[in-house]
């Protein structure tokens, strides 16, 4: 098993969303892993939503490190 590959895949999804003006708006952790809700907050007034289901511990850690580094807006909207 190459878990690192799965991590890279999940991370890429997060990075893609963040690169397209999505912000994290909600996090829910449960028995199935981590659910991260994103909302697009661009200048063009787009309001798309997306939710990622993260399975890999490294990715779940990555998300909170993003919050810690304030790379994303920490205030929920």
């Amino acid at each position: 098993m190459h878990e690192h590959q799965f991590y890279l895949e999940e991370k890429q999804k997060i990075d893609t969303l963040l690169g397209n003006e999505f912000r994290i708006v909600a996090i829910n952790e449960n028995l199935s892993g981590m659910f991260v809700a994103f909302k697009q907050m661009g200048d063009q007034g787009n309001t798309a939503h997306a939710t990622l289901h993260l399975l890999i511990p490294e990715t779940r850690k990555y998300v909170t490190n993003l919050l810690l580094a304030e790379k994303v807006d920490q205030s929920p909207t």
Partner: peptide, 8 residues
């Protein structure tokens, strides 16, 4: 603590 802000 960080996650709790997001309802996690």
């Amino acid at each position: 603590r960080l996650i709790s802000v997001f309802g996690g």
